[in-house]
Nucleic acid binder design. Sequence first.
DNA 1: CGTTAAGCGAGACGGTACGTCTTGTCTTAGT
DNA 2: ACTAAGACAAGACGTACCGTCTCGCTTAACG
Lengths: 220, 220, 220, 220
Amino acid sequence: MVQKSTQQHQSRPPAPSPTKPAPNSTRRSERSRRAIYEAALELVVELGYPKTTIEGIAARAGVGKQTIYRWWSSKADVLLEAFLDLFAQASREAGAEPYVIPDTGDLAADIKTVLRATVDQLKDPRYAAPSRALAAEGLVDEALGRRCAATLMEPSLQLYADRLHAAQEAGEVRPDIDPRIALEFFVSPLAQRWLQYTGPISYEYVDTLVDYALHGLAPR
Amino acid sequence: MVQKSTQQHQSRPPAPSPTKPAPNSTRRSERSRRAIYEAALELVVELGYPKTTIEGIAARAGVGKQTIYRWWSSKADVLLEAFLDLFAQASREAGAEPYVIPDTGDLAADIKTVLRATVDQLKDPRYAAPSRALAAEGLVDEALGRRCAATLMEPSLQLYADRLHAAQEAGEVRPDIDPRIALEFFVSPLAQRWLQYTGPISYEYVDTLVDYALHGLAPR
Amino acid sequence: MVQKSTQQHQSRPPAPSPTKPAPNSTRRSERSRRAIYEAALELVVELGYPKTTIEGIAARAGVGKQTIYRWWSSKADVLLEAFLDLFAQASREAGAEPYVIPDTGDLAADIKTVLRATVDQLKDPRYAAPSRALAAEGLVDEALGRRCAATLMEPSLQLYADRLHAAQEAGEVRPDIDPRIALEFFVSPLAQRWLQYTGPISYEYVDTLVDYALHGLAPR
Amino acid sequence: MVQKSTQQHQSRPPAPSPTKPAPNSTRRSERSRRAIYEAALELVVELGYPKTTIEGIAARAGVGKQTIYRWWSSKADVLLEAFLDLFAQASREAGAEPYVIPDTGDLAADIKTVLRATVDQLKDPRYAAPSRALAAEGLVDEALGRRCAATLMEPSLQLYADRLHAAQEAGEVRPDIDPRIALEFFVSPLAQRWLQYTGPISYEYVDTLVDYALHGLAPR
DNA sequence: CGTTAAGCGAGACGGTACGTCTTGTCTTAGT
DNA sequence: ACTAAGACAAGACGTACCGTCTCGCTTAACG
């Protein structure tokens, strides 16, 4: 799924714009692309996103500026692809199935497991710095924001939706619930605390979220 | 003795930072401050945050750049104060109690009322543009992010916490629920959909959030 | 003569411009004036003329900027008066007749004596720095340049003219010579070497100038 | 000699300063350089040197500021090169031998011819304004002053020295005279009158200078 | 297997905005 | 009323990047 949407972005065979010569990707230097990914991610972690410049990325990657402008349209664009690449790479290294929500038959436990892993990842600056940077840029550039949502978040969110659907069939969740809304009870509060510093993040916190969400706030 | 100690002309007892002369705020031009607020908000709405520059704000406000740098440390800093001022002004104009969650005895209805008003506000570009800009900058600048959370969001969030506490005492919410976590079921999903384009926003949507949150996802 | 032209500048009793309130010089702070002179001269020696700012002078003199703008029209104006004051002060301290060309009956010897003293003075940074600064500003601002010529140089030049005139009467100089031109053979080459780095300055050099000037370049 | 010192300045093979990347002059835009020269000279004539700004030069030349800062170190530096270029260009246009002192066998007449041409040039604002500006800046910035002396004045002065030397061999000038000093009797008085407004400039004046200098002030 | 056109590194270019500095005016207290 | 202090509008400074545009030089694809 992730791969599909990524392909969608990278392949522009029909060359829709006649003004641009449409670079020939068969001649593209793989070496440069990797170096640019690495440099971009490193600089965002080291300097923060605003101090990361295209000139800086080019310099660290040992690459001409034009090589960046030829293949990407903006700093955020570079970073988005670099981040997707990081994910793909991490997944490949982790082997097996990296991003699947387990289904042990106990929805609460399964969701907690995944959320705890997410908490760990949010605290790793290697992931946190680029994520925040992309989220920030996406807030202000709607097109980028939608692309981030579609490529970075949508695949994961769909996993939640799928797991909730399975839970509905198992009778663990009410059949009238819309999984696309229900999943937000798990991910949105965590996302907001992380992005906007509205509260601390911990295993205990995500466990509480799951319990509250499943059983409701009202007495029964 | 007296003379000798007077020679010590360099003693600045409070003076925490020796580098900045700390401008005298009693002489500050109220006229300039208001003009800067207005110009900043207008430009963010018209051009978007990234194309809003300090030079542009100064020019539109009819103010020297130094007057901005004297009183604020960054573009985001200006915008935060301008936005707070906009809120304060709006509140004053609205008169009475502008930001209180009603307590009719029906928690669900009250929360829905407030969330529907929030939905309307999120769609008003006068508020939306600066909010997104500040949120974006806060993502990448932790100090600013914490200030935004504390000054812009915390007051509203506390109102939810208070209303939930009242509902607990009225028996509408389980007594073991932490209101500071519970409130996130109402605001975080909405915030995320708005900020990250993960879904559409509507009255129906927020109503659904309230129902799901109060009664839980699991069958009872 | 010097006093006359100086007075001409400082006292503006008829108040020609009705827009300016024409400061009342009787209330003027003598203390501030002296402090400004000292600060200006020190800063020009320490930092050079271009890095000497009105703000810097005010700060070192412990004086408000307005006090400078009230009484002088420009940085060069301050420096010119400060320099004239330095001269007047030095003359008073030196007592007797400070600036007279001796008349021993030997024109060559007398001129050499004075020129050697001038060489010494040109090498004293206390005089050299402000002189160069004023000369520089005068090159580019004709009004100032004429005032410098009239107040700083003219008195000295007239002394040469007078001495040459006396020499004419004594038969040491041809009667058809114009002293106002002849004196330039003594002062201009020295001035140019000093101002424009076109050659070294020494006692021997000025002695040579005098000999060449008196007896001509052509064989006799 | 002149060439040697010029070379010394231009060729810096050992690259003494590691901080500056030293721009690659083979890629330099000739078009920009000429436009900058023209703009600088025009602005100095129109506005005067102090009101000529680097930003103004860049704007009129249709050039980025960095293009100026990349190749020159200061406003005066630009102007010096622009002025040298103006000279070189004028010489090329004048064809033949532009700057040679004639040798008709009559030293007095030859020098008068050249000085009269100089008087004309000093009154042409196209030359006068930049000259004064450079002289002014050179007074206050010794490095620049020496460069002006070496590049602008030295070549001309050497022509006088050469002509005087020839006159010595022809018996028109005493053999014990140092031409490097003697020439100052012709150029320095004129320079001072021009630079410092110490007197009027005319053909008659320079003729008088030549006569006085050759035959001396003393009766014979 | 050599030609050739592309991508490549490098970096100069016209620009824009930065944050700082200074100018000359104006305002506020203090004496 | 003049002063010390300093905020103000204005605008130049020199720097950092932007995104575009050549330059030669690899280097892969096709003829």
